[in-house]
Write a protein that binds this DNA or RNA. Structure first.
Lengths: 130, 130
DNA sequence: ATTAAGAATGCTAATTATTATTAATTTGTG
DNA sequence: CACAAATTAATAATAATTAGCATTCTTAAT
């Protein structure tokens, strides 16, 4: 794999933008400064990068995938009210992969844990749930 | 909401078909016996049913959502080799929602835990990973 | 049983998210 | 620099899902 300016920009965008953006959001973010950038390039590189485990692909509540620069195993909280994705420390369940391996006699490569509910901000502001 | 033959059939199909089918798969399954059934009806009703928490929507490895008749909180194992979705007992992490609520001061409604790896069958048969 | 209102459906078009194609540009290397 | 391979932009194509609308089914009151 060769060096590519755009791939590097996409990785940087994810590093800066810690709010777990979608491909489209990364595209919009970079498009401002690099108008030549194409959406297909963003998708292509996010696929490369996630295959190389340089970024993490996250399934959210909607239909589009989100991406995370943090590749270490960690979990997320998805707010049903504001839609934001919050990070969680992995300490909540340290040896859970091992447990699953024992139960199913399977090899666990990684896990994807999401907690869905209402975040503290939205509870305070009495925002309407959708 | 009125009674509907089709909605009832879709729920039954999910009850019988415990392999976490997609909307398309449920459609194909029912289409054989009920040729008048439309794919849009399957999608519409799966949305209704999951809003009412009568079925569970599951994000798999691919781009289409899977559905589960089991609505109680439980986790899944996704095999990267054969693509099958296996169920896991919730005992692997009993009080995890409470932990998350304490960490984020949020309200956790439910969680969605997926373990990704290679199932025991695929390990035995030396199937190639994709 | 009849009927009218609302709910649900089939069909199709439209949208959204993503991937494939291909010619042109960029990058690594001798 | 020159050439081959990798990457890209632009666009077409595909996949997954939703929306619109005329028709059919359900419900509950007559």
């Amino acid at each position: 794999m060769n060096y590519s300016k755009h791939r590097s920009l996409i990785l940087d965008a994810l590093k800066i933008n810690t709010n777990h953006p979608t491909a489209e959001e990364i595209y919009m973010f970079l498009k401002k400064d690099y108008p030549k950038l194409s959406l297909a390039t963003v998708y292509r590189n996010l696929n490369y990068l996630s295959q190389l485990c340089l970024v993490k692909r996250i399934k959210g509540l909607g239909n589009s995938d989100h991406f995370d620069y943090q590749t270490h195993s960690h979990s997320h909280f998805l707010c049903q009210s504001c839609g934001k994705i919050h990070d969680l420390p992995e300490t909540i369940a340290p040896d859970i992969n091992k447990s699953v391996e024992q139960i199913l006699e399977a090899k666990v490569v990684y896990h994807d844990m999401s907690f869905i509910g209402v975040c503290s901000d939205c509870q305070k502001h009495h925002k309407v749930q959708f």
